[in-house]
């Protein structure tokens, strides 16, 4: 009984309950025949949201006003440049990965430079930098789709024992992030800054260094997600990141991370990512029109957030 109460007091449980419920309703449509197929699809597509969501989670945890709006542009630029460098050759995969991560590193540094040196609020700084990043992506390849190297395409589209490889990659990253947040000094510092930046500074937390590292981490994860997504879907497109702006913020909020900062939640990101994919699949399966679908998606998301936040107060 006590254990049960403990589980229900976790803010992430509601995202998983919602995802489970939506999954159940969706497979009921076919009397359970679609369970494996839908499960695999959900794991695959949730993975990309998870990777960008984890980065956004750290940024949001830094406290009010912290958000990275350059995630879509970073994904696009990293994927575009990496695929251009690789020219579909297997031998160049490592170089391509380095290019992608390098883009993330550069974007993160540039973002924090705008925030710190020019004292621009993060929301404006990352929004304006995203214009520059997106324009660079357009300029660098004019939107031409280059095929990913065959090995990368195989890696991202195949499964191991029925579990999609991209889900395994996302799981690995999640574990690293989880340890970073829960066990490392850096994770504690991020939470401390989010709870009270002045107090954290007085207590000797290197506030600037931690914030800098967080923006870099977020951009690097975005670039990795872009690299994997482009490999998975057969090439980079100029609008490939668009969906992930709202998604990255939504999975953080639905997953039980405090919007006001200070409290991050890693497992919730998975629940929320699965939920966001499944809710669209469910409404598609039952033939809801686009208008009804958006309306219901909004209502369900609000419902989950209310459920999750009520529990936290109680």
């Amino acid at each position: 009984m006590n254990a049960l109460r403990m589980v229900f007091s976790k803010p992430w449980i509601w995202a998983f309950i919602a995802a489970g419920g939506v999954f159940f309703v969706t497979v009921m449509f076919t009397g359970g025949a679609s369970t494996i197929g839908l499960g695999q699809a959900a794991l695959t597509f949730a993975s990309f949201s998870v990777i960008v969501g984890l980065g956004q989670m750290f940024v949001i945890t830094l406290g009010p006003g912290n958000v990275d709006l350059s995630i879509p542009a970073t994904m696009t630029l990293a994927a575009t440049l990496a695929l251009k460098v690789m020219e579909s050759q297997n031998g160049m995969i490592f170089v391509g990965l380095l290019v992608a991560l390098g883009v993330g590193l550069g974007v993160g540094i540039a973002n924090y430079a705008l925030i710190k040196a020019l004292r621009i609020p993060p929301i404006i700084a990352t929004l304006s930098s995203s214009f520059i990043i997106q324009s660079t992506a357009i300029w660098s390849n004019r939107g031409l789709r280059i095929r990913p190297p065959q090995w990368m395409a195989d890696l991202t589209t195949q499964s191991l024992f029925g579990v999609p490889n991209v889900a395994l990659i996302a799981l690995g990253i999640t574990l690293v992030i989880f340890v970073l947040l829960e066990k490392s000094l850096y994770g504690r510092w991020v939470s401390a800054i989010g709870q009270n930046m002045r107090a954290a500074r007085m207590a000797g937390v290197p506030v600037d260094g931690v914030r800098f590292a967080t923006y870099v981490l977020c951009a690097v994860l975005a670039s990795l997600a872009g690299f994997l997504l482009a490999s998975f879907s057969g090439g980079a497109a100029l609008n490939m990141g668009t969906e992930y702006l709202l998604t990255s913020i939504a999975v953080v909020v639905i997953g039980g991370t405090a919007v006001a900062g200070g409290f991050a939640n890693v497992p919730g990101i998975w629940g929320a990512s699965l939920f966001l994919f499944l809710v669209v699949s469910m409404l598609n399966t039952y033939g809801a029109s686009a208008g009804v679908r958006m309306l219901l998606t909004g209502v369900i998301i609000i419902g989950v957030i209310i459920a999750a936040s009520r529990r936290r107060v109680a």
Partner: peptide, 23 residues
């Protein structure tokens, strides 16, 4: 028997179709 929004983008269409296909 099914209708999804692909937003004229290969990756969005891929995700939407993968979501409805099992059903």
């Amino acid at each position: 028997v099914g209708s999804v929004n692909g937003d004229w983008a290969q990756d969005v269409a891929q995700r939407a179709v993968a979501g409805i296909l099992p059903s």
